[in-house]
């Protein structure tokens, strides 16, 4: 347990160093962007000093990490407000969006994948496989545009873009997140249902499923009580990996639906070279990916008691 935690901390530290280093190497001096092209050299130097940019990179890295460790995310150059406040406000859009998407995707993918496995080789299996193959190929932002076309332009059931805010209660807010969540969820569900199908196909061939059938269990009971629970490990693995895709996907999807989320905050911060915001955001996202993968390992333990005693799958 302890070595795992130390490994986790080291990975987080390495991730933060990578982010800092990449931003250091890439062009774009925040002070010159703030002052514009006609800036005087002495003004620029004064601002760079005020922002601490004249200090060596390793010192700025340590200062940033030190502050992060105490929960201080720093102050945005452009908005002059604490980065933590900016992120908290935007996370109220992105986090529910991501959660809705992953819930929808799982709720669609598992029944579809299990059904396809149960109908192995039949016309319904082929149909599901064809649709999911198409779903995998669709970029989520195009799906988003198609959903706007159908539900906002043609049917006018949903707004074409924008976020209602949480002020008017949860329903209007969830309504404006439903189409973007679907756009994110469907391509993921396509991948996940394919994974579910092949995992269930594998367990259906196992001896214990044959034994269950031999002792008189019906096909449905054998499927749901024996084949599906044993097929969940690869499904959870992919679900954990998809979390990272989902986070990245929000950047583009938030643009499609003009949602004021973390992705748009990042694009704005990059455009204004508000590097502290970019740094904090990327590290936060990398940290959440690392933590989710860490959590996935615990889900394995819950799913497979053999792993709790150091056995192999």
């Amino acid at each position: 347990m302890l070595p795992r935690l130390i490994g986790l901390l080291l990975t987080l530290l390495a991730a933060s160093a990578v982010v800092f280093f990449v931003l250091e190497v890439l062009p774009g001096d925040p002070a010159s962007v703030m002052l514009g092209t006609g800036a005087q050299a002495d003004n620029l130097a004064a601002l760079r000093h005020q922002m601490g940019l004249d200090q060596p990179a390793w010192w700025r890295y340590l200062a940033w990490i030190g502050h992060l460790a105490t929960g201080d995310f720093g102050t945005s150059y452009t908005y002059s407000v604490p980065v933590a406040d900016l992120i908290r406000e935007r996370a109220l859009v992105s986090v529910p969006l991501a959660l809705m998407a992953i819930t929808l995707s799982t709720a669609i993918a598992i029944p579809v994948g299990v059904a396809a496995a149960a109908w192995r080789g039949g016309p319904r299996d082929l149909g599901i496989m064809g649709v999911t193959q198409l779903g995998v190929a669709m970029p989520n932002f195009w799906l988003g545009i198609l959903l706007i076309l159908l539900f906002a332009v043609r049917l006018a059931w949903f707004p074409a873009s924008g976020f209602a805010g949480w002020g008017a209660g949860p329903l209007p807010a969830l309504r404006s997140l439903l189409l973007p969540a679907l756009a994110l969820a469907l391509p993921q569900a396509a991948i996940l249902s394919r994974v579910t199908r092949s995992a269930v196909l594998e367990t259906l061939d196992e001896d214990y499923v044959r034994t269950a059938r031999a002792k008189g269990l019906g096909p449905a009971a054998a499927l749901w009580r024996h084949a599906v629970p044993n097929a969940l490990i690869p499904v959870v693995t992919i679900l954990g990996l998809q979390f990272s895709f989902l986070l990245a996907g929000t950047v583009i999807i938030e643009n499609v639906f003009t949602l004021p989320g973390l992705g748009r905050l990042m694009l704005q911060a990059i455009a204004q070279r508000d590097l502290i915001v970019v740094q904090d955001l990327v590290v936060l996202l990398a940290a959440s990916v690392i933590l989710v993968n860490f959590a996935v390992d615990f889900v394995y333990l819950a799913l497979d008691p053999r792993l709790r005693h150091g056995g192999a799958v």
Binding site: A15, L26, A248, I270, R273, V282, A286
Partner: peptide, 16 residues
């Protein structure tokens, strides 16, 4: 793999 690929690609192209 800890860095969401597309998101980081957005960051790199936007800055570079």
């Amino acid at each position: 793999f800890a860095f969401p690929a597309l998101l980081t690609a957005v960051m790199i192209t936007a800055l570079a």
